[in-house]
């Protein structure tokens, strides 16, 4: 069984993989361009586009069912020191998957510049969500029920 340390590491990795997959491809590209040094890497698995069947649950909590598929692109890279990174990103951008995999490997190597770049991507995501949530909040309503007829 994985120890506490291991699961914490996994949680951190899940977090950065989520940020990398959820960021627009152009932002990940800009983050890559912004790195002081871009490492050499080899494809362990060249970018490949396929699908994942998205599942839902009846009533939100009940029996699982197949809602429909989504396009996903995956990639695996190996850095010079043997570190292997994986990228699984929604959509069909091979470059996005490749860079997500490369950043994943850099993060596993505890690369500080990569960590700063991922943090910036996470902040951008948070800002996007806040902007959306603020627009949504402007449409919050209080309905008054109007009494019909007598009493």
């Amino acid at each position: 069984m994985a120890g506490q340390e291991h699961s914490e590491e996994t949680a951190a990795r899940r977090r950065w993989m989520s940020v990398l997959a959820g960021a627009p491809a152009a932002e990940v590209e800009a983050a890559w361009e912004g790195l002081p040094a871009r490492p050499e890497r080899q494809f362990l698995r060249a970018p490949e586009t396929g699908m994942v069947m998205v599942r839902g649950r009846a009533g939100g909590t009940g029996r699982r069912f197949n809602l429909g598929e989504m396009t996903v692109t995956r990639c695996a890279v190996r850095l010079d020191d043997g570190t292997v990174g994986y990228g699984y990103v929604a959509g069909r951008s091979p470059r996005h998957a490749e860079l997500a995999a490369t950043f994943d490997a850099l993060m596993l190597r505890r690369d500080e510049a990569a960590a700063a770049a991922v943090d910036a991507l996470a902040r951008a995501r948070k800002a996007r969500r806040s902007a959306t949530a603020a627009k949504t909040a402007s449409t919050k309503v209080d309905f008054f029920t109007v009494v019909r007829g007598e009493n």
Binding site: M53, V54, R55, M70
Partner: peptide
């Protein structure tokens, strides 16, 4: 078009209770 793509597998069921709600 979807018949031309391989399927990597199925997702964990989505949790609509954790949705970032817009409506």
């Amino acid at each position: 078009y979807r018949t031309t793509l391989p399927r990597f597998g199925a997702s964990v069921p989505i949790d609509t209770g954790r949705m970032q709600v817009r409506r």
